[in-house]
Design a protein around this nucleic acid. Structure first.
Length: 463
RNA sequence: UCCUCAGUAGCUCAAUCGGUAGAGCGGAUGGCUGUUAACCAUUAGGUUGGGGGUUCAAGUCCCUCCUGAGGAGCCA
């Protein structure tokens, strides 16, 4: 006999009433009486559980009442309208077979656990309501992002995970090596001789695919990356992980305004998609995780994002009369508290801040005509802060060269990158979206460790 | 990396001024014919994160290490 998913049952219960069917899933919870019992069964196909009811007419009634939480079951029975409140229908079991029994040491109990505790059992936490919702939304969001870009004619590019350039950005990188760390080969200067390493040079895990993808942008016009990214920063916050995923679109013949339009369209598209595809999960988040979630997301869908320049932002903050822990001064980067003040108190909606001082931004961002700012943009959203950072790229060969020199970088490291400007360069722009931050934004989850299946953070790479 | 807080039963927590370590949930056993975090009764369960110190006496005070969380910086 083939079995049916609980999702299929919920999709069309009326046509299945009074029919015999079989389901396979795991016991979420069980409630016992003397002569009958209820099992909440979840098979992973959907957020909801199916209530299974059985009584002493079941051949293995007394064994079944002792099945521990978490056990995997095969249940055959008839779908009936439920006489009690709480669920419209239930499966009256005629046979319950244990496919794999759990045990009394099963760490998940039928009560609320702290997220901290659940982080110690990441292999089991997807069996809880919250994490089943989180990881289904994570999956849907990934799909929504691919769908958005493909509908717009973007080409998905896999940029390398192992990189030979250590010049991608300021971030600390993870070394990739096969050298014997106890006894590394040394060169004549008594330094480690990376010529003998696997790739014949120093290699690291990527901190960004952007520079690589620019080459594909200047061939395919509209491209994006979506892949793992690694930062060896010793950051211990709710928003940082050592391994995370990043989306980096890059568009040619485009300026900063095109870039921001793309970012806004993308955010609205993926929010709408997830709201439509995971209504039960989103309802759950709104009820138990963040009661303002749906309201906030709806606001994003309904509003035009605000646009202000960095200089305007500084002016607004200076005139706000609010005393910040960090002083606001033109030339300093905006602090988290400044960003959140702008998006939460001043505008109360997503806001793009553009045209930052060149000294605080990367070398590849396009120099504005005022010679002191660059065509950069950050998207700030209420409750989270910065969620996207991007820029128009410097397409002028001579300006890029002088910017590389100005920032104290080695031009020889960027020869191939400069070549892109030499061989048919074109104005282009792009941005980076932290995938996990987007999952957090859409779910209301406050800690990045709770939106990654097996999170990697400083001092923690278990499982 | 810096600052702050925390670590007590399987889980969530309590323990007043330094004076006999407790409760709820979970488990076990029994009861209950429609439960919804089911309910009722009984019961087992502890080297109080590790190490050192002060004291007649330390979960409680001091030192140190480990782990976790929050904030900051950095960023996505």
């Amino acid at each position: 006999m083939s079995w049916i998913t609980i999702k299929e049952i919920f999709a069309n219960p009326a046509s299945l009433l009074e029919t015999e069917l079989e389901v396979r899933g795991w016991i979420r919870t069980q409630r016992l009486s003397k002569n009958f019992a209820f099992i909440e069964l979840n098979d992973g196909s959907c957020f909801k559980n199916l209530q299974v009811v059985y009584d002493e007419t079941l051949a293995n009634f007394s064994e079944a009442t002792k099945f521990p939480l978490g056990s995997a079951l095969k249940v055959a029975g008839k779908l009936l309208a439920s006489p009690a409140a709480g669920q419209p229908f239930e499966l009256k079991a005629q046979a319950i077979e244990a496919i794999g029994l759990s045990s009394l040491e099963y760490p998940l109990q039928k009560k609320r656990h702290s997220f901290e505790y659940l982080r110690t059992i990441p292999h089991l936490r997807p069996r809880t309501n919250t994490f089943m919702a989180v990881f289904r939304v994570r999956s849907l969001l990934a799909y929504a992002i691919h769908k958005f870009f493909h509908e717009k004619g973007f080409v998905y590019v896999h940029t390398p995970i192992i990189t030979g350039s250590d010049c991608e950005g300021a971030g600390q990188m993870f070394r990739v090596t096969t050298l014997d760390l106890q006894n590394p080969p040394l060169n004549e200067q008594k330094k480690i001789d990376f010529n003998q390493d696997f790739f014949g040079k120093e290699t690291n895990l990527t901190v960004s695919g952007q520079l690589n993808v620019e080459g594909f942008c200047l061939a395919f016009n509209r491209v994006y990356t979506f892949g793992p990214t690694f930062r060896a920063e010793n950051s211990n916050t709710q928003r940082h992980a050592s391994e995370f995923w990043m989306i980096e679109p890059e568009i040619a013949f485009a300026d900063l305004n095109d870039n921001m339009r793309l970012a806004e369209d993308m955010m609205k598209y993926v929010i709408r998609f997830v709201l439509e595809q995971a209504p039960q999960e989103m309802e759950f988040f709104n009820r138990f995780i963040d009661t303002r979630l749906l309201q906030r997301l709806q606001l994003v869908l309904d509003s035009e994002f605000e646009h202000i320049s960095y200089s305007q932002a500084v002016e607004i903050l200076e005139k706000s009369g609010t005393s910040f822990n960090f002083p606001v001064m033109w030339g300093n980067d905006l602090q988290t508290e400044h960003e959140r003040y702008l998006t939460e108190h001043v505008f109360k909606k997503p806001v793009f801040v553009t045209d930052y001082p060149k000294a605080i931004k990367a070398f590849y961002m396009r120099l504005n005509d005022d010679k002191r700012t660059v065509a950069a943009m950050d998207l700030l959203v209420p409750e989270v802060g910065e969620i996207i950072g991007g820029s128009q790229r410097e397409e002028r060969h001579d300006v890029l060269r002088s910017r590389i020199a100005e920032m104290g970088l080695k031009e020889s490291d960027y020869q191939w990158y400069l070549n892109l400007r030499k061989f048919g360069g074109a104005p282009h722009a792009g941005f980076g979206l932290g995938f996990e931050r987007a999952v957090m934004y859409l779910s209301g989850m406050e800690n990045i460790r709770d939106v990654i299946p097996f999170p990697r953070t400083p001092k923690s790479a278990e499982f």
